[in-house]
Simulated scan of single mutants.
Amino acid sequence: MRYVTSRPGTTPVVLDSPHSGTWYPDDFGHACDLAVLRRAEDTHVDKLYDFAPGLGVGWVEAHFPRSYLDVNRNLTELDDTLLDGPWPGPVEAGPKVRLGKGLVWRLTDDGVPLYDRKLSVEEVRRRIDRCWHPYHEALAQQVQAAVLRHGYCIHLNCHSMPAVASSHATDFPGMEHPDFVIGDRDGTTASPALTRWMADYLRAQGHSVNINHPYKGVEIVRRHGLPSQHRHSLQLEVNRQLYMDELTLEPHEGFGALKLLLLDLVRELLALDPRRL
């Protein structure tokens, strides 16, 4: 199994799904029950957007789970209490680390410990080399290629969120999520006009939408979005209750309608030049 799939496109739009991986590598060594661990996945997000290559849209996808290694974290966001020795680089105990959701997860969204052992420094470094670097390199190449082809790139970082935030998921436990949350890190990773356009589009389809609350976007949009250079990166969170049963992880009758909505959204993005908004 490959850790990362990258399918280059021909259009100015690039999508990526960093958290929909369902392949659990043999060296994971977790103590947490797999059924509990799987609730951390953005399950089926890859399938919601599987139309992308057919539209000439670039696509990057992680096959490993976010709990194994979270590519939506900076390399410094490492909980060194998980390790059996000192980490050779800098570490920072930011809000995600405090929640147990750093580069390598310590806790599930419900606060269940993932491990009953210390992780070796070497195994964490292997995860970074196999997962983090290839993912970000593939995405950077696709974003840059889109800019060279068209003069700009619209990058959509694709996620899903539970209907209600769990105890260790965000700083807002118990929050009932809207249908969509768009994140641009307060206008620093995409043109605010583009963010407003997307929110207005989704609201016009009858959906509730928040901007930058409670999800602003994390490392992926921060690293790859630079609107001053016409690289626009938006994080899009989709409420899982729109398309799946959160207990069984099975898609329900809303899956098809949501996929059509996302297809229409991407088609609209293909016809949109953010430089003219």
Rank of each mutant, 00 (worst) to 15 (best):
R2H: 14
P8K: 01
V13K: 08
V14M: 09
L15A: 00
S17T: 04
S20L: 01
T22V: 14
P25W: 06
C32D: 00
A35I: 05
L37F: 15
R38F: 00
V45C: 06
L48Y: 02
Y49Q: 06
F51E: 07
P53H: 01
V60F: 04
E61C: 15
A62P: 13
A62G: 10
Y68P: 08
V71G: 00
N72F: 00
T76M: 09
E77P: 10
L78I: 05
D84Y: 06
P86A: 14
G89E: 11
G89W: 06
A93L: 11
V97D: 04
G102F: 01
V104M: 10
L107P: 02
P113E: 02
K118D: 13
E122T: 12
E123Y: 07
D129K: 10
R130G: 11
R130H: 12
W132N: 01
H136V: 05
Q144Y: 15
Q144L: 12
R149T: 01
C158D: 07
P173Q: 04
H177D: 10
F180E: 01
D184N: 13
A190S: 06
P192L: 09
W197M: 04
A204E: 11
A204Y: 11
Q205L: 11
H207G: 12
V209N: 11
V209R: 12
G217Q: 12
P227E: 00
Q229F: 02
S233A: 15
L234F: 03
V238T: 11
Y243W: 04
D245W: 07
T248D: 03
H252P: 00
A257E: 11
A257V: 10
A257H: 08
K259V: 10
R275Y: 05
R275K: 02
